Simulated scan of single mutants.
Amino acid sequence: MDIKYNRWKNITAVMLGTINNETFFKARSVSVVLDELRKWNENAYVPKVISIGPRYNGRQELLPMEEINWRCMFHLFNRSLGYTISPDKYVNNCMDTILKMDVAVRSSYLGEIELDRYDLAAIVFNDGCFLLEFLISGSSIDSVIPPFGGRISAIGPNPALEIGKMEVVMRDHTLLENQIPLFVLGVLFQNIFDKGFHYLVHEIHNRALSLFGFHGDLKSVDSKFAHFLELASWNINKE
């Protein structure tokens, strides 16, 4: 069958698949800083500790966080221990799914992303796994699906708990260009954990809200958020 037709079908299926309650998609939602603003204080728009998404990935000053990201990912996938599929299988499933969502991910960013689909998928996969573990740690989900089946990790404590206490990290999470679309977290959650736990997806969003000072149940909020900055802005504007 025609290759372009198959690609069109796949793109359509992926884009439609992102439009539901857990994996909300919004095109061009991750914007860029206008040059007129950037020239006055460029440092105000640049992450100091952690890169999220493709804009600042690979910057020398942000590389020290990469080891912490990998440790968080290790804890995340070891939350699957004790279920029917090995962690390696979950990793492969997630990688395949993120790669297939290239169009949806790429369409979330304003402007051209000059990365091929594999490089972009690698960044989004790594950062998405880090953010998912960052949000699960310390949340109600932590005790429901503990890493290592509740046993002590051989590589030490989960760094995500300490990261959440760092103001500079929270600041980096709300920078305009330092974002990945939140639907990625929903997709990763659904690929990593058994369907019996999918009811917990909304708790991820509740946890994100709590980190920005909102204490309540997101089910009672008639809003959908494309990324962390949009969520933080909503929290400020509602007050």
Rank of each mutant, 00 (worst) to 15 (best):
I113P: 03
F197N: 14
I204H: 02
N237H: 11
K39W: 05
A13E: 10
G216L: 05
I136L: 04
D119T: 03
D194K: 10
K39G: 14
D217W: 09
R79V: 00
L175H: 01
K39Y: 11
S143E: 13
H215K: 12
I180T: 05
N206K: 06
L34Q: 10
S107K: 03
I145Q: 09
I136T: 04
M101I: 00
L229V: 00
H215S: 13
V184A: 13
H198F: 00
L76T: 03
Q190D: 03
L120E: 10
I98M: 11
A44S: 12
V103L: 09
K48R: 15
S210A: 15
V105C: 06
A122W: 07
F134Q: 02
S220N: 03
G164Y: 00
R7A: 15
D2E: 10
W70S: 15
A232D: 04
Q60I: 03
I19W: 01
F134L: 06
L120I: 08
V169N: 04
T18Q: 00
E167I: 07
R38Q: 14
H75L: 02
K224Q: 11
N6M: 08
S223H: 09
R28E: 07
F212D: 13
P47E: 07
Y109W: 02
F134T: 01
F25G: 02
R28H: 04
I145V: 15
E61F: 01
R117M: 06
D142R: 09
K165F: 05
W234L: 12
E112I: 02
E61R: 07
A122K: 15
N41S: 12
D127S: 07
N158V: 01
I113E: 11
F25M: 00
S143M: 08
K48F: 06
D119C: 07
P147R: 14
F214H: 13
V91Q: 06
E133V: 03
S51K: 01
V49H: 13
K26A: 01
A160H: 03
H198D: 03
K9A: 14
L175C: 03
Y56I: 03
F125K: 10
R7L: 15
I52Y: 14
V124M: 10
L131D: 06
P87A: 14
N43M: 08
Q60H: 05
L16T: 00
D127Q: 06
D102M: 04
G58K: 11
K4G: 13
N69Y: 05
N43C: 06
S108W: 01
F183H: 03
P157I: 06
R207Y: 00
Y56H: 13
V33C: 12
G58C: 12
N43G: 08
F25K: 01
